[in-house]
Nucleic acid binder design. Sequence first.
DNA 1: TCTTTATTTTCGTCAAATGTTAATTAACAG
DNA 2: CTGTTAATTAACATTTGACGAAAATAAAGA
Lengths: 114, 114
Amino acid sequence: MTTLTKTFAALSDDTRLTLVEKLLKRGELPAGTLAAEAEISAPAISRHLKVLREAGVIVQRVEGTHRYYSVQPDALRAIHGWTMDHRAFWSGSLDRLDTLLALEPDDTPGEGTE
Amino acid sequence: MTTLTKTFAALSDDTRLTLVEKLLKRGELPAGTLAAEAEISAPAISRHLKVLREAGVIVQRVEGTHRYYSVQPDALRAIHGWTMDHRAFWSGSLDRLDTLLALEPDDTPGEGTE
DNA sequence: TCTTTATTTTCGTCAAATGTTAATTAACAG
DNA sequence: CTGTTAATTAACATTTGACGAAAATAAAGA
């Protein structure tokens, strides 16, 4: 498995995507808070956090008995980067035929540079 | 499963990500070409294509006995959109702490960070 | 030390995913 | 209608992933 497929795999579960979005919106949170807000057991959440950690999507900070989790920005950058690598295929028009034309070595109209 | 987790699930396998990247780089291709270039059997590829199709990542065009596959741009747009929704978290600074501070202008409980 | 609190690991089970080979459907040529 | 090519589906074995319950680890405090 490549780094990217591991990242996608980590985010391919609703429970885990929800955990990540909580961390994205609210910042660093302890495992206990994440477990309390979830509908499944604390051990199950702990395992999901482990999957996310091993995929490099989140990082853990230990403080006493608490484990604080937060999102690793590089993981989102990697996904963003992958979509940008293939931007010519999906950006520009909403029409698929136009996307094919966008592959021509021609500059993309309408969109300002970012 | 949400649309997004289904998309991530479809791309969470190396074989499938490779198929998608071939289609992104070379445009529409028949199942036979994709199967011939893969290291696993044609039936296995056929099922991977089905997973991608059911997740909305690729579309199929039938012409005689041939099935031509191509990437559905909306799938990549959805992923790109998700990363952009949380852009504040990973863009700007390369430092993780900066991102946390940017989201919480006040309350910073920890003192001994890392 | 003994106990409480916070979190993770282990265990047993079950559903889903993956790969192979064989069989099947579909289009087309003779 | 029979044979050939393209692609999918069927059947089967194996692996992987997810869950709850219970046990284990680790830090704090009485």
